[in-house]
Amino acid sequence: MDEVRRLAGAAWAFRARVEREASSRFARLADAIPVFDPASPVPDLLRRAAGDEDRHALLCAELAAAYGSPAPASTMDVRIAPRSLGPRDAVLYEVVAACCITETESVATLATLLAEQVEPRVRTVLHEIARDEVVHGRIGWAHLSREAAARDVSFLSPWVPSMLAGTVEDGLFSTAAPAPEDEELLRHGVLPRPRKKEIFLRTLEEVVFPGLEKLGVSASPARAWLLSALRHVGA
């Protein structure tokens, strides 16, 4: 049980950090978009989302502390766009990576967790975060949609594998046997790795890739990357 609590605490502490970083990123992107798209509704949504993420970070940190793993208070705003992209393309890259991919994956993970038997305190936190994350995922698709209506966004296609590579945590594609504590962790809001892998892949195949293709970004390089990653681990 101590090991389960330690792992659950580490997961929630990591989530607190992820949420804080999302807050900084959203606030920065909100300031960047009006330079080239002054009529966009996205900056206001991003500012609201930044506030949501601060609140989520607190909720995650409280849960982490309850499991005995205090979350670090510091945060960094890491810019992830390739250096070869101009400012407008860099914003689009970052919005797609952070919202169309990561937030969309997060919504699928949260929905999956909420369908399971989880501790009441964990359920309350999951529920509050899930409600907001739907909006955050939608922000990315809203921005990509506006950009796709205004100009050619196909340059993103070869970069999607880099976004995915940076989204996947170490060992996600591993074919190792589930750990004994996996099922117990589910009660504390942490998906067992095989389940997480399944959700990740299905979300890509059924939501992210079709969404990108609908809006003019070919998913072929991303599919090739995924196939290669799965082959590499023998999955």
Binding site: F155, W159, S162
Partner: peptide
């Protein structure tokens, strides 16, 4: 990336870890 003129060597892009 090289097919598009960019490359990892000149500052490849990254991604964002989530839940």
């Amino acid at each position: 990336q090289a097919a598009d003129g960019g490359s990892a060597a000149d500052g490849g892009g990254g991604g964002v870890l989530g839940w």
